[in-house]
Simulated assay, not measured.
Amino acid sequence: MHQPATIAVRGSRIREKRQVRGMSIRELAAILGVHVSYVSKLETGSRKRMSPEKYVTLRDALHMTDKTLRAPITNAKKEVTSEQHHLDSGPGGGPCGPV
């Protein structure tokens, strides 16, 4: 079964920006249409992802950019071309050359 797409966010940035704007967790939760615990979990990092719809609402409410709100992608596979592999392997076959 297909899971809906979600977006990883930086909880510490959410809290920081909310506080700078003078907004309470309750106010932000009301804007998002969620329970206070949802916002709290985002801010503390116990919840790391949210729906695209809620993400856009949060980003707009806090006047944030995608760059500051989105968490970096950590599980993306790095593609290595054969040329990169050859360059990285060094003359002895390992990354540091002969042992």
Score class of each variant (00 low, 15 high):
I25L: 11
H35W: 02
R26W: 04
G94K: 14
R18F: 06
S12Q: 13
K78F: 12
E53Y: 07
S89P: 04
I7T: 07
I31M: 07
G22P: 02
G33V: 06
R26M: 08
K48F: 01
L32F: 02
T57E: 02
Q84S: 11
R21G: 03
S40E: 12
E16S: 10
A71C: 01
M23L: 14
A30H: 07
I31F: 03
E43G: 08
L87A: 07
G11S: 09
M23N: 01
V39G: 00
R13K: 14
N75Q: 15
E27Y: 05
P95D: 05
S82K: 13
K41G: 11
Y55C: 01
G90A: 15
T65E: 00
T57Q: 08
Y38E: 01
A61F: 00
Q84A: 14
R26E: 14
V36C: 04
L69M: 01
V20P: 05
H35G: 07
G97I: 05
G33N: 03
K17S: 07
K54P: 04
S24M: 02
L32H: 01
G94N: 12
G97K: 01
E27G: 08
Q84D: 13
G93N: 04
R59P: 04
K41H: 15
G45Y: 10
V56I: 13
D88P: 01
G93S: 07
N75W: 13
M23H: 02
R13M: 12
E43S: 06
V56Q: 14
L42N: 07
G22L: 01
P98C: 10
R21E: 09
P52W: 10
G11I: 10
N75Y: 13
R47F: 03
T44L: 13
L69Q: 01
R15I: 10
R15Y: 09
D88W: 08
I25Q: 14
R47T: 13
G93D: 00
G11L: 09
M50P: 05
G11W: 09
Y38K: 06
T74C: 06
K54Q: 11
G33P: 05
R47S: 14
V20G: 04
P52D: 03
K67I: 00
E83P: 00
C96R: 14
I7Y: 02
Q3N: 07
D66E: 01
I7K: 02
G11N: 08
Q19L: 15
H85N: 08
E83N: 00
V56C: 04
L62M: 02
I73E: 15
E27Q: 15
M1S: 09
M50T: 13
T68L: 04
P52K: 03
S37Y: 06
A8F: 05
K41I: 05
R49P: 00
R18L: 07
H63Q: 11
S37M: 12
R10Q: 14
M23I: 11
P91Q: 09
K78A: 13
I25D: 07
M50W: 01
P91V: 15
P91T: 11
L58W: 00
Q19N: 12
S12L: 09
